[in-house]
């Protein structure tokens, strides 16, 4: 297993209390596979990514039984050793390419410095590598682009530069936090193709964070659905999307707009009433409890059991498996 995470917790100070942003999640990503982390704002998906990169805000607290990348246990590394891994073994691509690039340095400065810091290459070698990688992400005139500043590029081009920067040292693992959310739909499709191509060539493991289930359907091998700091369902893409088991996953999929059904004139889009709660105190019960249409008495008392369907689709829910099957409307 390329990446293995056990019992990851992240807490953040929040107005004098401790906000439990991530509450005990387990993840595994083999080489060459894409795991999509999906969920709505505040579900803890970005905090999970930052925890894996060891880039959490200073006031955040991280605890985990295990965060193992290849042969290296990341939780035990000093900041110095971790920063030697970051960008070399594990890279991250952020949502907002403008804030992730330094506005006062050229694209070339930024790409070369990543490479030289990790490999000790000289300037010419770094330049050649930068051109090679920029071309591989579909940038024309790479040599000219290297002399430009971030503000001279469009959003789509900036995002390609960030991808190039993440790929400079051929990492084994890449974490993408909503890398296409701020882009136009046609640019999104191009960027996703570039990412998938890069992954295929290098057999990289990928964690792709998104709230867009349409994107998940196109790129994921496995899907983890997060809600209020927990994973509520995890499994192969087709199983989770076409045969979701958790009431939250089902609600999320049903609320994606689709063409109105001819036969049901005036049919309404399914929506989940209420909002995502925040957890400040430890609570083992199901986080979806307050909004769940299938809530039972036992849900208000006990932690949801892990149930497994078809050997690798796992769901944390009290509902018996037979009731989790999709019923015809």
């Amino acid at each position: 297993m390329l990446l293995e995470v056990r019992d990851l917790h992240v807490t953040l100070p929040d107005q004098g209390q401790q906000l439990r942003a991530v509450r005990g999640i387990d993840l595994e990503v083999p080489a060459g596979e894409t795991l999509c982390l999906v969920g709505e704002s505040g579900c803890g998906k970005s905090m999970t990514a930052l925890a894996l990169m060891q880039l959490l805000p200073r006031n955040a607290k991280l605890s985990a039984e295990k965060i193992r990348l290849g042969e290296t246990e990341l939780t035990k590394l000093s900041e110095r050793k971790m920063s030697a891994l970051r960008g070399r073994k594990i890279s991250m691509i952020f949502q907002e390419p403008m804030t992730a690039l330094n506005p006062v340095f050229t694209i070339g400065d930024q790409l070369r410095s990543v490479y030289r810091r990790h490999t000790g290459a000289n300037k010419q070698e770094a330049q050649a590598r930068a051109i090679e990688v920029l071309e591989s992400v579909g940038l024309t005139n790479a040599a000219v682009r290297l002399g430009q500043f971030p503000h001279q590029l469009s959003g789509g081009l900036r995002q390609r530069v960030l991808i190039a920067m993440a790929l400079m040292c051929e990492p084994e693992m890449i974490i993408c936090d909503e890398p296409t959310t701020a882009l136009d739909v046609t640019t999104q499709a191009q960027i996703l193709r570039i990412l998938k191509d890069a992954q295929d060539k290098r057999k990289m493991g990928m964690i792709f964070i998104t709230h867009d289930l349409g994107v998940v359907a196109r790129i994921a091998d496995r899907v983890a659905v997060m809600y209020a700091g927990r994973i509520v369902e995890i499994g192969p893409r087709a199983a989770v999307l076409q045969n979701p088991a958790h009431p939250y996953t089902r609600g999320l999929i049903a609320s994606v707009p689709r063409p109105k059904d001819e036969s049901a004139e005036g049919a309404r889009l399914a929506s989940i009433p209420g909002n995502v709660p925040a957890f400040h105190r430890e609570d083992q019960r199901c986080p979806f409890l307050s909004r769940c249409p299938k809530r039972m008495e036992v849900c208000t008392r006990e932690a949801p059991p892990k149930r497994t369907r078809h050997w690798d689709q796992h769901v944390f829910c009290h509902l018996p498996l037979e009731e989790q099957e999709v019923q015809p409307a």
Partner: peptide, 18 residues
Amino acid sequence: VLKEAVFTPDDENGVPDL
């Protein structure tokens, strides 16, 4: 092209070349 670039949860055909 726009129609092809819209992804829905029901379509698992990979990322299209527009």
